[in-house]
């Protein structure tokens, strides 16, 4: 029986595949071993194990301020985008909305516009009213950029839901609001959780807009990294990157498991 499985005969193909995997992973994870070395130049493989760069990262007030600022705006963005995005998704999927498709297209538009255009446009809008380098300014624009992700994920989990469940609740006398909170919401909770994780990370990872609207005192972790990469390339950046990589992968894993739970 001929088979389409990749067989031992496809050795060149396999080697090519392994080489591409190395190409994918090496630049992504190289900072992890580098961050545990003790010397302040870059060598690989590392010849000893030390937490020196993590200690310096934690002791440096600038790095800490940037980390705290980024976590703060990511948490607020997550809250705002999840609430607004879920409301929107409910209206899109369950409401009677004039011009539904036009509204959907408008809501997803931020996904199509290159971030550098958003960044300088927002810089121009925020500077005269003093919103650059403020928590409010960051949360406003990061929420606008995160809403499309929330709408996509929550709409998908609402679309998979059997609408008769809702109807059954209402036939039993529940008001539409009560049916939503008692039946629909618990069922799409994993979808909302996944959307919240994506919203958090979309803000935490966001680099281009943050690069333009950070102030001298309030800058995000990504902006701080960008500056240091351009200026002094200390291995503290490797330690900070490792922290980002670990946090991101852990959260994405959680978000993905939640999203997978919905599709079952």
């Amino acid at each position: 029986m001929p088979s389409l499985r990749i067989r031992a005969g496809d050795l060149p193909l396999r080697l090519f595949g392994l080489a591409v995997l190395a190409f994918l992973l090496l630049p992504t994870l190289i900072m992890v071993p580098v961050s545990f070395d003790s010397v302040h130049f870059i060598r690989f493989p590392p010849r000893d194990f030390s937490l020196r760069w993590y200690r310096e990262y934690l002791a440096d007030p600038e790095w800490m301020a940037a980390t705290v600022f980024s976590l703060q705006i990511a948490a607020l963005t997550m809250l705002a985008a999840t609430v607004l995005g879920t409301m929107t998704a409910v209206a899109l999927e369950r409401g009677r909305l004039p011009g539904r498709e036009a509204i959907r297209a408008l809501l997803l538009a931020p996904l199509l516009v290159p971030h550098v255009v958003v960044a300088i446009a927002v810089y121009l809008q925020f500077t005269p009213i003093g919103l650059t380098g403020t928590t409010t300014g960051f949360v406003l624009i990061h929420t606008a950029l995160a809403i499309p992700y929330v709408v996509l994920v929550v709409s998908a989990s609402l679309a998979r839901l059997d609408p008769t469940l809702d109807r059954a609740a209402m036939n039993l006398g529940a008001s539409p609001t009560r049916a939503f909170f008692a039946v629909t919401l618990p069922l799409i909770r994993p979808g909302i959780f996944a959307a919240a994780v994506f919203a958090f990370l979309s803000s935490f990872d966001e680099t281009v807009v943050a690069f333009f609207i950070s102030g001298d005192r309030h800058k995000t972790l990504t902006r701080k990294m960008f500056e240091d990469i351009d200026m002094n390339l200390s291995p503290i950046i490797a330690a900070a990157s490792t922290v980002i990589v670990v946090v991101t992968i852990a959260l994405m894993w959680l978000g993905r498991s939640a999203a997978a739970q919905v599709s079952k």
Binding site: L26, P27, T28, M31, D205, T222, M225, I237, S241, V245
Partner: peptide, 14 residues
């Protein structure tokens, strides 16, 4: 999932 900034930094390290 890893930030573009972190991966570009990876290329600089290399």
């Amino acid at each position: 999932w890893t930030s573009v900034l972190v991966r570009s930094y990876g290329w600089i390290l290399l």
